[in-house]
């Protein structure tokens, strides 16, 4: 049985008694994994993460972190958790060092951690520069430094690449991979862009309109991708081709001037081709169209 670092059961939440923002969310984040929590804007990602950190009062369901009830062990859990929720939470009138120092007092971690995390995020040269003068990328990196200051076992990051340029996104990805591999930190990272995190995560959860539509490993999502691949025939007479295929008790549709069928074994492809040619339909090309992960994500959230 998998060891879950974060596990929610039937987590349901609504603002002021209105329609539920979250509906029975059963999140299962395995220890040591990088879990990508995906969903379009307004899907309920931030609300879920806020509930996990106790920033919102839980209404229904249960939350367990490190196998302990969050409600009963809030302080112990937060001691081992680092977080970045949405935009950077930093004191603009203080320097990077000062921002970390005031949290170091709370976490009671060694002072050397400040230098260490600044090195890790590449911000050792900021000196007396106030955080308000930092670029968004620098702020985002400092926020990561804040999140890992206490050497957490769990890192909860809500859209950490927001506002970063492509280079910044790659840097952030490498940094998170490094933290996960070398320090064994479980990372729960949310995003609304699958392409942005598919190179980072090992597990994926897709949320839409407050419901968890998919949860599993990235490999499982990729096999879904294979299942959703389609076969396309370019023919001289699509209407006649469609009739011949249906006469052979197979299903097909016409899409963009092509006959589109579900993926099938190669013998079956040869059979369809033979039937079409024997009945006088010219076949110009046969191709396989793979749905990329982004399309699957869109399909999941659109359905």
């Amino acid at each position: 049985m998998a060891n879950y670092c974060v596990q929610t059961k039937n987590l349901t939440y609504s603002f002021s008694g209105k329609e539920a923002i979250l509906k029975n969310i059963n999140l299962e984040v395995e220890e040591g994994c990088i879990y990508g929590f995906l969903g379009p804007n307004g899907a309920g990602k931030t609300t879920t993460l806020r509930l996990l950190l106790g920033l919102l009062k839980k209404q229904h369901g249960s939350i367990a972190v490190f196998g302990q009830s969050f409600e009963k062990n809030r302080l112990e859990i937060l001691k081992r958790t680092g977080s970045l929720i949405e935009s950077p939470s930093l004191y603009g009138h203080l320097t990077a060092d000062e921002n970390l120092l005031l949290l170091q007092k709370i976490y009671q971690c060694p002072k050397e951690r400040i230098r260490k995390v600044l090195e890790l995020v590449g911000l050792t040269q900021t000196g007396k520069k106030k955080v308000s003068q930092f670029s968004l990328g620098m702020k985002q990196r400092l926020s990561i430094a804040v999140a890992i200051l206490n050497s957490p076992s769990l890192l909860v990051l809500d859209e950490p690449t927001n506002g970063l340029d492509p280079n910044g996104i790659i840097e952030m990805r490498e940094l998170l991979k490094h933290i996960n591999r070398h320090q064994g930190v479980t990372i729960l990272v949310s995003s609304h862009l699958l392409t942005e995190i598919e190179k980072l995560v090992t597990h994926v959860g897709v949320i839409h309109k407050g419901s968890l539509l998919f949860q599993g490993t990235l490999a499982e999502l990729q096999s879904k991708q294979l299942q959703q691949s389609v076969l396309a025939f370019e023919t001289g007479n699509d209407v006649m081709a469609l009739r011949i295929i249906r006469d052979n008790e197979l299903s097909a549709t016409i899409d963009n001037g092509r006959i589109v069928m579900e993926m099938m074994e190669k013998e079956k492809v040869a059979f369809v081709n033979e039937q079409l040619v024997n009945n006088g339909v010219s076949v110009y090309s046969i191709s396989i169209t793979k749905n990329d992960l982004e399309t699957i994500f869109i399909n999941l959230t659109n359905n």
């Binding site: 950190l53 106790g54 920033l55 977080s83 929720i85 939470s89």
Partner: peptide
Amino acid sequence: NTWKQLHATP
């Protein structure tokens, strides 16, 4: 915007 960070500390 630091209330959330403050309240996520132990």
